[in-house]
Amino acid sequence: MTSDFWAGYLSGALGIIIGNPLDVIKVRLQAGDVHAAASPTHLTRLEKATSLVRGAAAPILGYGALNAILFVAYNRSLTALDNSITDPTSPVGVSPYKIWLAGAAGGLASWTISSPTEFIKCRAQLDPRAEVSSWAVAKDIIRTRGWSGLYFGGGITSARDAIGYGFYFWSYELCKRFINSDDDGAYQSAMNILLCGGVAGVVTWGSVFPLDMIKTRLQAQTIGDHGHLTETQALLGRRTLSSFQIAKETYRAEGVKAFYRGLGVCSVRAFIVNAVQWAAYEWFMKSFNQLGTQVKLQPGI
């Protein structure tokens, strides 16, 4: 495996561990569970460790692999788009639109993992059963919908990933170019990476949040099999609607604000998670590359 694969995997898993508590709140707000998300009972439940990590098992394993594929696909796509690049992790002088296209290609490549991972996570976080695990949710989906059921909502997930990751890499690189200078010390460089990573996370979610809300409500429809009716399902009358139908019905009933419900929580989470994730990725890449250089310099290798 290449350095960017393992750097992406480890940084992705770390990001999920840090960000899952706020992601639980974000998903419940998107699903339309406004009163539950704001009630003291709900907050007390969220304070428990078991609730804070709810639905985290699938993303920790899945998002690590997703992030690995994302960074590998992005680096390879960027190199293919611009033959002059010698180091895709530092694309100095590369056109921003090429960075966006490479990021979108990386998002599409990671979709094979992000789609089932997102569905399982969403179901686990919204399921009314208190102690439901990611594994139980995955088995339930396969039992009721078959293996292909893991990709329920895959179309809108792929659109979200392509657009979002395009802006993810685009905003990170532009931010680095804007604030970096030749005389930055190690501490300042680390602070720059944290800042640019956080900015990239906020920009990314701001660009695709309505799509993510629709995806959440689309997938939340499948929870009704257990006899629990979410606000989303009450609004839609238990019918399984398409992404377009959900968008239309949501706008008619709740207005534009519904498409951005939970964006504040998501932005806080996005800044923290992606600041740490980018810093970890850059550090792992530097460490792996240094290790590889040392190995090559050893006699007989």
Results as ranks from 00 to 15, higher is better:
1 M>D: 13
2 T>K: 04
5 F>I: 13
7 A>R: 12
14 L>Q: 07
14 L>K: 05
26 K>R: 13
29 L>C: 06
30 Q>L: 12
33 D>M: 15
34 V>N: 05
34 V>H: 07
37 A>Y: 02
41 T>D: 13
41 T>Y: 01
44 T>Y: 02
48 K>M: 07
53 V>F: 12
59 P>Y: 11
61 L>I: 13
63 Y>D: 09
65 A>L: 14
67 N>Q: 12
69 I>L: 11
69 I>W: 09
69 I>A: 08
74 Y>D: 00
74 Y>Q: 03
80 A>V: 10
81 L>D: 09
86 T>F: 01
89 T>C: 00
89 T>E: 04
89 T>W: 00
97 Y>N: 11
99 I>W: 01
100 W>P: 01
103 G>C: 02
104 A>F: 02
111 W>Q: 06
111 W>E: 11
111 W>I: 08
116 P>H: 05
121 K>M: 09
122 C>T: 14
123 R>S: 02
128 P>M: 10
132 V>I: 15
133 S>G: 07
139 K>L: 12
144 T>M: 06
145 R>V: 08
146 G>W: 14
146 G>L: 15
150 L>I: 15
151 Y>N: 08
152 F>K: 07
158 S>T: 15
161 D>N: 12
162 A>W: 04
168 Y>C: 00
169 F>I: 10
176 K>L: 04
179 I>M: 04
184 D>P: 03
191 M>W: 04
194 L>P: 01
198 G>F: 07
202 V>I: 09
204 T>V: 03
209 F>Y: 14
216 T>A: 10
218 L>P: 00
221 Q>K: 01
225 D>E: 13
228 H>F: 14
229 L>M: 12
239 R>L: 03
239 R>T: 04
239 R>M: 05
240 T>G: 02
242 S>M: 10
244 F>I: 15
247 A>R: 02
254 E>H: 09
256 V>S: 13
257 K>H: 09
269 R>M: 11
269 R>H: 04
269 R>E: 11
270 A>P: 05
271 F>R: 01
277 Q>M: 03
278 W>F: 14
278 W>N: 11
278 W>D: 04
281 Y>Q: 04
290 Q>P: 00
292 G>N: 09
292 G>F: 01
293 T>D: 11
296 K>S: 15
297 L>G: 00
298 Q>T: 05
